[in-house]
Design a protein around this nucleic acid. Sequence first.
DNA 1: GGCCCCGTCTGACATTTGTCATGGCTGGTG
DNA 2: CACCAGCCATGACAAATGTCAGACGGGGCC
Lengths: 204, 204
Amino acid sequence: MTTAVRVLLADDEHLIRGALAALLSLEEDLVVVAEAATGPEALAMARAHAPDVAVLDLQMPGADGVKVATSLRTELPGCKVLIVTSHGRPGHLKRALAAGVRGFVPKTVSAQRLAELIRTVHAGNRYVDPELAADAISAGDSPLTAREAEVLEHAADGAPVAEIAERAALAEGTVRNYLSSAATKLGAENRHAAVRLARERGWV
Amino acid sequence: MTTAVRVLLADDEHLIRGALAALLSLEEDLVVVAEAATGPEALAMARAHAPDVAVLDLQMPGADGVKVATSLRTELPGCKVLIVTSHGRPGHLKRALAAGVRGFVPKTVSAQRLAELIRTVHAGNRYVDPELAADAISAGDSPLTAREAEVLEHAADGAPVAEIAERAALAEGTVRNYLSSAATKLGAENRHAAVRLARERGWV
DNA sequence: GGCCCCGTCTGACATTTGTCATGGCTGGTG
DNA sequence: CACCAGCCATGACAAATGTCAGACGGGGCC
């Protein structure tokens, strides 16, 4: 038999990470060489152990899975990335693929299936959960312009327009204009609903 | 040895549920008798198998862990409930304890620890994660009155005041008043930030 | 080059939202 | 009972937000 696939496991939930490590270890051709609980930790571990496949949770403290994937792409081009997520937002999938991620699946898959997918991406193939892919396609591209998205992000925590204007170095009128056009494009009543929708679709 | 502890496992993420079931099965004195992916399913499974301990995820489709716990309390008083959660909000802990939950821990605990806790609650003891407990205590009780909380909930999705007023059968001025006082109590700039804060503390 | 479309940016105006002062009602206290 | 404290409810006014028409500049196209 060829040498086993070396896997890095990154998830902030100890319970899941440990359980997963145990289950994957039952597979003869897989070996978990490192675990991490945060984005930066995952990067450090990847540098230290140079795994064949990195299984990354999408939401982790420090840096999310996509950011880690982006860094890995340049630092360890040979390391394939498989993203696992609880709440699949269409935009995330798009960002992930742009970052060179080879696989993207929800946490509702079984461990058995995950093991298969690790082999799949290790073999150089790609895999995206069909349901998530359908969502991403139906959600389509973000209709927002760069500025609109930027301003919307600044508005995310409910900050008043004056504060957004200062942070974005724009006139208040301009900020209101972008928020308004973003809300219109998203079919939202106001900017707060717009933020919520953009979040759901992964456009911010 | 006495007969093994019969455990019900409910979590919407197959990956985790399966992995967890496998790990707990390694413990000689624990046996997973049923699994569920949704709140209603968890209830049905509990009725069918009458487990000794129910390990419930806080966030599940259909009905959350606390709602399931509330139903279980009357239907199966002998069944101890242990809640597991990814994002611990102080208010949830309070609601959970009020619902008669015997244990409340974040998913960052290890499987080994979880097994111990299952035994702990089965023995009739309680356990609450110290960090979550500290958060709950420092966050304190909700300062919001019934109406304030109600109006804030209606405002959650960014709806305009007119719509909230209609749904709550109040004058617009009254709605604005409640939103304003809620925002003041929470130390928020405006109602949208207030909604966010109340969500974080589990007060809505 | 000349044209047009699109994104960026702005101020003026209409609408919505936040704040305040006030009054009615209920429940606990002396 | 009389009193006070707290919640509920409202309208009037001030402040923030959303909408509009339009100016400027760059990139693609004939």
